[in-house]
Simulated assay, not measured.
Amino acid sequence: MPWYAWLIIILALGSIVGSLLLLRDSATKLPLSAEQLKRIKERNIEQNARDARDD
């Protein structure tokens, strides 16, 4: 393969990795209240029970 094909492949992979790192660094956690966390945990328990019952 010619050198410029390798260069294009390296640039494409670098672009993908760079954008994934940028996305990871810019991600922030969602500030949730205690009530919201409680509701989420209750829904997870209910969904796990439904999944166990369906299997």
Rank of each mutant, 00 (worst) to 15 (best):
W3E: 07
W3H: 13
Y4A: 07
A5S: 11
A5Y: 03
A5I: 07
W6S: 09
L7K: 07
L7W: 00
L7V: 01
I8D: 01
I8C: 09
I9G: 02
I9L: 10
I9F: 04
I10D: 00
L11Q: 02
A12D: 03
A12F: 13
A12H: 10
L13D: 05
L13C: 08
L13T: 07
L13W: 10
G14S: 04
S15Y: 15
I16N: 00
I16Y: 07
I16T: 01
I16C: 02
I16Q: 06
G18L: 13
L20V: 12
L20T: 10
L22N: 01
L22D: 03
L23W: 01
L23E: 00
L23H: 04
R24W: 06
R24H: 07
D25A: 15
A27G: 10
T28M: 15
T28C: 15
T28G: 15
T28P: 13
K29T: 03
K29I: 07
L30G: 08
L30I: 06
P31H: 13
L32V: 12
L32K: 04
S33M: 00
A34E: 15
A34Y: 11
E35Q: 03
E35H: 01
E35M: 04
E35G: 02
Q36F: 02
L37A: 01
R39K: 08
I40A: 06
K41P: 01
E42P: 01
R43S: 10
I45Y: 07
E46G: 04
Q47T: 06
Q47M: 15
Q47H: 12
Q47L: 15
N48S: 14
N48Q: 14
A49F: 11
A49G: 06
A49H: 11
R50V: 03
R50T: 07
R50D: 11
R50C: 07
D51Y: 09
D51R: 00
R53H: 11
D54I: 13
